[in-house]
Nucleic acid binder design. Sequence first.
DNA 1: ATAGGGTTAG
Length: 528
Amino acid sequence: MVITDQLIAYKTINNLLKQCKTIKQIHQLHAHFITTGLLSLNPCHNQSKILIAVTTIKPTSSSTNLLSYAVSVFNSIPNPSTFCFNTIIRAHTLLSSPLNALLFFSQMRSVSVPPDFHSFPFVLKACSQLGSLSSAQTIHSQALKIGFVSDLFVSNSLIHIYSVSHRLRDALYMFDESSHRDVVSYNALIDGCVKSGDVAKARELFDKMPFRDSVSWGTLVSGYAKSGLCKEAIQLFHEMELNIRPDNIALVSALSACAQLGELECGKRIHDYIQESRIRVDSFLSTGLVDFYAKCGYIEIAIEIFESSQDKNLCTWNAMLVGLAMHGHGQLLLDYFSRMINAGVEPDGVTFLGVLAGCSHAGLVDEARKLFDKMESVYGVSRELKHYGCMADLLGRADLIKEAMDMINKMPMSGDVSVWSGLLGGCRIHGNVEIAVQAADHVMELKPEDGGVYKMMADLYADAERWEDVVKIRTCMDAGKVKKIAGCSLIQLNGVMHEFVAGDDLHPQTDDIYVVLNAIGKHQNEPC
DNA sequence: ATAGGGTTAG
């Protein structure tokens, strides 16, 4: 190779491009490229280097500027090569503009620039970002025609898109058909099994794969946690610790399992591990920790972690709000909600579930009504059945049964079990038999196997001394169909799990527990 | 230059 001044300048600029942190720096280098004539040396290749540099910039406010710059660079290339097209498609997938990525791909096809084995993974990623299975199928057929499906990256991209589109059979087909598979093929398919609800199949693949990396472990731990198999999730996490260093993703999933189960000791150990290993607490981990401590009863620690967290996202805020709601801290929750809005975080449906549930528990009726009104008009969050359910519960508790009934009648959709059960709960508290009968009819129609309604109606009639009706209800219950699912709760104390089922007396300290419970009950009835 | 796993609610 002949070392020329031009080559040195080219290499320097190439390295400088890689180090660019801002769009301004790229502009300067781009200008330099033009003025020194280096751009004309190999225009297609060098312009693409600029495009690649653009995509490595961390988007600050919006990626729109970066993309429009990238497009203008692309448009200045007279006859873009495959490499150029790949780069502009890649830029759009990286900066979350998948539709445009697909449009560039179709432009590429229409001007007969042949795609290569780099093109397909980019384009398929755009399909998965769009959630468009049909586009993926089209791309798949093109890849098949040109003969790229045997490429490992292409076939893995296809396994992935079919997995996330809940097309497990297609994902399995791709997996079985691919001549060579690697750990990524297995991981993508394991995720597909999890997403299609077949955790057993996921486990089977996990057990038989020749090599497992942290993604394999993390996928299955989170799969178990999401499928409600929390004990399995924690067990697998412990097994993982013996084999490989858990990363943030595995830690988050394990924390979620601990939170769901109330596994205080296990979750604390994870927290200790995070601190000892000086793991950077990202927004996912802070969410996991806040949720975990809140669910295990330690709302103060949850608040502490939330406040000290450097990295919060919508879920972190939601976990905090839901935690405060669970603990009955209604006023504090409203303060946090305002802080969230002021911080520029856009609330979603979960946010409002937390806020409304919190108001309900704290009896903050006016506040809830106002926020419920503003949900769509001010915050642009659509009011779903769950939110109406919260309102029915809140109004019912506050003895505003008529208002709750009016709300339900005016709803744009028909009420579901949660809405009518919410209203029924209010009727039960305030002894409103008439409305209770209507609400109960709806619940029984929508969920005939629900035993709770019958129990509630029996109690209501008993309070109203309508004994004949009590007998009728009991007869219905005994007649079958009704599943009596007993309420149950778990609490861990000093490392021992205590389990209670409604009405049981199996705990060794049952008598003592009831003495305290009765005392609390009496205390609650006394005026504060 | 290309492929895979994460948190909140229900």
